[in-house]
Structure formats: C-alpha cells, structure tokens
Amino acid sequence: MTAGLKHALAESGHHAEIVFFPFNFSSVDHIAQLMDYCSTQNFETVNGYLVDKLLVLQFPVYYVNHPDKTLWLMHQHRPAYDLYDPVCASKALAALRKKIVDQDTRELKNLPAVYTMCRNISHRLHRFNQIASRPLYHPPAHEDRFYCDAPYDVIFFPSRLETLKRQDLLVRAMAHTRSPVTAVIAGEGGGRQHLQALVRQLNLSRKVCLAGHITEEEKYTLYARSLGVFFGPRDEDYGYITLEAMLSSKPVITCTDSGGPLEFVKDGETGFVVEPDPERIAQKIDWLHANKNKAKEMGQAGRQAYQEKNINWNSVVDTLLHR
C-alpha cells in the first residue's frame, strides 16, 4: 500500500520518501514512548531537504509535525479502540488507551483534511474520536493482473491465517455443503494448526485444502478459476480480497459483520452477505454451484461495480495533494 502510494506519487512527478518507525505492539511502555517521540518530531526539513507535504497513514506516525500534513488513515491502534476489552485489560493498558484516544482526538481533529482507507475506518474514527473523514479507496497491487477464466468447483479464500479472518467459518461451512464444491484456503499464519485440526476433525481433507503460501501468479490463477470467493473476516478495515475477487469477476460471499467488504458486496448482485453462520454460507456456496451462469453474471456485475467506483491511484494522489 505504502509502496503503491510512493510509486503513484513518483508517477505524477513527485519525489516521495517513506518513513517507518519500528513498532513493538507488545510493550505498553514502548508504544507510549514512541507516541511521545513522534509528537516531538518535525518533518518540515529532513536531511537538508525541504518537505512540501507530509502524508501520514498510521498510528503513531501521524503525530509527527508538519505545517502541511494530510492524514490518510490506514491504522489507528485498534487494541485501544474496537479491540479493547475493559474486562481483561491491565491498568497500564487502560491508561495507554486513555492516552491514545485523547491524543488521537486532539491531534487529528485539527487536521485540515482527513481521509481514510475505507468507510469502516471512517466510522470508527467518528465513533471513537468524533472526527469526520472521507474514505478514499485505492486499488490493490497489480490490479491489471487479475483475470477471469472458466471456474473449477472451488471457493477461494486467500488471507493470513488468523482468528479475525475467520477461515474457520469457511471450513465449518464446507461440512454443510451438498454440492461437490471444494475450498482452497491460501496463506500462512498463526491459525494454521488450529485450522488443520479443524479440517481433520470435520473429516474434510478432500473438500478443504490449506494451501499455505502461494505465489502471486498462483493467486491470480486461483482467483480466475474459482467459482466464488469467500471473505468473511470480522470487522475488516478495507480488505483487498473483496476487490481482487471483483477484479477477477467472481462473486464474493461475505458476512454481515465483516466491515470493509460490505462497502463493496451487494447482496444478491455481486455476491452474498450472510450471517456469520456456516450453514448459511454453505447454502450460498451450493447456490453458486447450482447456478453457475448466474454466479458468473454476479462476478461480472462485481467487476462492473469495481470499475464504476473509479478506484485508481491518480485520483488518490490528486485528492491527497490538492484536497
């Protein structure tokens, strides 16, 4: 994403540099220190260069000072917001949470222009910090590589294997499908062992394949050859998978609580929005199998919808630079 932005800036004739701060999630102290550090930084001149414009994307770098600062919010510190659990939180974390929310509200409120990656992030920013913002969509990397081909009986779900992405929903759904559809779940991550055990336990080793890491090329082919894509994470921010599926002209099955995908998937038109319930998901998978022509039309409608949204780097750059 950041690289994409830098590339797009360069394409439009700007010189851009990316600045990262190493970030250690686990240490409350470290986070607090980094916040304070960023707040004291001024990027008006860097290495002798005069910086015309500062685009800030995430916590806590967005505290860095510059007279012409624009926020395009990718991440707040979600453990201090929607993922914060007051019951289990330590005292230190509770204190940190207060510090973050206060500082975010104070600092970001004063910015002349606030954009976010997507509506879901805008919602959160408004809910927790009462700051209005505008979602500004950007295309997934290599968007021109996605294509569509005749489908195999396979539902594709590429993503990191973690609890929030809810690969287990798809695995459980596959236990309820009646059609000969299979599922390929691609990606690595901490959830792998759990998913493997689940597949074994439900006796689904023929129907579900945990593909592990796949190459980019394989990803394009899998998208192109899939019957549909499942992407039902819990409260995802943006989620490239939705867009990649649409680019590949494939219908997307997502869930009512999936966040980002809901901004793109129209139930019954470009895919399905169902309760995060394996049986409901299975029904839709079987439907896709039974109505392949309709499924194809849905996919095409998805691609159409994507194109109509006019998601491209040029408009992102224009918006960010000329607010």
Partner: peptide, 19 residues
C-alpha cells in the same frame, strides 16, 4: 468439465500446473 468430484488438493494442483 469435471466428471467426478475432485478434491481441493487436486484443484490446487491443476491451478499450479496451469500457472
């Protein structure tokens, strides 16, 4: 055309070969 139900692994294999 898939005449018989094939496994997810087989489909992945096909896709890999195709790629």
């Amino acid at each position: 055309q898939q005449t018989a139900p094939i496994t997810a692994r087989e489909i992945l294999e096909r896709v890999r070969q195709e790629t």
